[in-house]
């Protein structure tokens, strides 16, 4: 019987990592990021990574840890504003960066996982994002060709998994995780809870996409902008 549940991040990443590889990571800001697997990547020390992720973490948390450890060569992201070390490496030309509008990025990852090589969108037409890309008119409106993205490995964070690899995400921590889970040649999920059964109608990501699962040992869920209501 196939055993998808691995004891820890190191074991779950064993045999999947190589220098120069491409990784798709779920998460938005610091929400729904695979904290435990990022620690595993840090311990493995794999270098020259291309990382496809909406954001790049902060200096001392999330993907910022891999940046600080000089493991990342290239990022494909929509917004990287919260990370000083990122800025330093980028300005020193030690790090390559491809900006992609957020919705286009989500769709490129979805497309990659769904076997769609490319798609046309109005997003970014007439801006720097569309420079050098093919344009085509549909119904009198100009669209730009964007390509699907896949990775050698996808790392995602979910709330619950069963032993089949079916996943349920929690609230807005879902964000990029469902698409990322489809876009890795191998996908490893870390979850807050491994449960006996998930109602088939409640599965967000079916286990067909998930090769390995670990119980997350790091669920810090750091908050970037702690905003509270004024309570009388």
């Amino acid at each position: 019987m196939v055993e998808k549940i691995y004891p820890d991040a190191i074991a779950a990443l064993e045999g999947l990592l190589f220098d120069g590889m491409t990784i798709v990571a779920g998460g938005f800001g610091l929400c729904g990021i695979p904290e435990t697997l990022i620690d595993g990547m840090l311990a493995a020390g794999t270098r020259d990574l291309t990382v496809i992720s909406n954001n790049a973490g902060v200096d001392d948390f999330g993907l910022g840890l891999l940046l600080r450890n000089r493991q990342v060569r290239r990022m494909i992201s929509s917004y990287v504003g919260e990370n000083k070390e990122f800025e330093r490496q980028y300005l020193a030309k030690e790090l390559e960066l491809e900006f992609c509008p957020q919705g286009t990025l989500a769709e490129r990852i979805r497309a990659g996982g769904a076997g769609i090589a490319g798609f046309y969108t109005r997003t970014g037409v007439g801006t720097l994002i569309a420079e050098g890309k093919e344009l085509k008119d549909f119904n009198g409106e100009t669209h730009v060709l964007e390509t699907g993205l896949v990775g050698d490995l996808a790392i995602v964070k979910a709330w619950k998994a069963d032993r089949f690899g079916n996943l349920v995400f929690r609230k807005s921590a879902r964000n990029f995780n469902p698409m990322a889970a489809t876009a890795g040649r191998v996908t490893v999920a870390e979850v807050e809870e491994i449960v006996d059964a998930i109602d088939p109608d409640h599965v967000h990501t079916p286990g067909v996409f998930v090769r390995r699962i670990i119980l997350a040992t790091r669920n810090e869920k750091r908050i970037e902008q702690r905003t509270l209501s004024m309570v009388a």
């Binding site: 992201s77 929509s78 917004y79 990287v80 504003g81 900006f99 509008p101 957020q102 919705g103 286009t104 997003t123 970014g124 801006t127 994002i129």
Partner: peptide, 9 residues
């Protein structure tokens, strides 16, 4: 440059 985020979309 911090990036376009979702504004272009």
């Amino acid at each position: 440059v911090k990036g376009p985020g979702g504004a272009m979309d």
